[in-house]
Simulated scan of single mutants.
Amino acid sequence: MTQILSIRTSLHSESAQSAQLAQQFIAHWQQSHGDARVVQRDLATDPVPHLTAKRFTAFATPASERTEEQTAEVAQSDTLIAELQASDVIVLALPMYNFGIPSTLKAYFDHIARAGITFRYTEHGPQGLLTGKRAFVLATRGGQYAGTDRDTQTRYVRDFLGFIGIDDVSFVYAEGLAISEAHRSTALQEAERAITTLAA
C-alpha cells in the first residue's frame, strides 16, 4: 500500500489554508490512486526542536559509540527519517512567513539531513539517498511572489529535497490571499484546479 507523509508547517495547524489544500490533495490522490496510508506530521502541535551543537554532535557520533544521552538525542531524528523512508509520496503544506519557510520546517529539515543516511558525499558531489519518491508542495502566500526574487521558498525547498534524493517535486501556489476576498477566492479556485490535475 502507498504511504503518504503529510507535513503541516503552519502555526495554525489543521485550520491553516495550506493544510486544507494538502487535505484536498490527499483526498483527490486517494480517489485516483486507491486507498493509501496517511502519516500526519504536524510541526505546530508536535514541533521539532532547533538543532543544537550537542544534538549535532550526537548525530555525528557512530551509533556504537553514543552515550545513552546521545542515543536519546538521535531518537527523534531517526523517527522522522524512518517516516520519510517508508513513504512514497510527501505532501508539504507550506505557508510563507516573512519571505521564507516557517522556522519549524527548517528545524525539521535539519533533523532529516543526516550524512550516510539521507545523503552522502562522493567525489562527484553530494548524492541523495531518499530516491524514488514524489513530493507535492501546497504553498500559500498573502502576497504574490511566485517567479520573483522574493520567492525564496521554491528554490530552497526544491534544492533541499533534491539534496536528499527527492527530485520529483511539484508546487501548487495559492497567492494573494490577503489582497482581497475576491482575489483570495480566485486564487483558491485556481489552486484547487491544479490539485485535481496533479493528483489524477
Rank of each mutant, 00 (worst) to 15 (best):
A146D: 09
T197R: 11
E69Q: 15
I81D: 08
P47N: 09
R41H: 08
F163N: 05
S10D: 04
D46L: 06
Q30P: 05
E190I: 06
A113F: 05
H50C: 08
H111D: 09
A146K: 11
A93M: 04
S77H: 10
D78K: 10
I166M: 07
A174L: 11
R66M: 11
Q70S: 14
F59K: 02
F109P: 03
T67N: 10
E65Y: 02
V48K: 06
A93S: 15
V74K: 11
A75S: 10
P49Y: 04
D110W: 10
A194H: 14
G176P: 05
F109D: 02
S64V: 10
H50I: 11
K54C: 07
E192T: 12
T71H: 03
Q31L: 08
Y145H: 13
L105T: 03
Q127A: 14
R114S: 03
A27M: 00
F56L: 12
T148S: 09
S77C: 07
T154E: 14
F136M: 05
I101C: 00
S15N: 12
H124L: 14
G147R: 02
H33W: 13
A60P: 00
A86W: 05
A36K: 09
Q24V: 05
A115W: 02
G132S: 08
D110G: 11
R41S: 10
A60E: 06
F25Y: 12
Q20M: 09
Q144Y: 05
D42K: 02
L21M: 03
E68S: 14
Q153N: 13
T104A: 15
F59Y: 09
L11K: 13
T2F: 13
S15V: 10
L129E: 05
D149Y: 13
Q153I: 12
A86N: 13
L177V: 06
I101W: 01
P62I: 03
D159K: 04
R184W: 01
Q127V: 15
T9G: 04
L177E: 04
L43D: 04
V74S: 05
T197S: 12
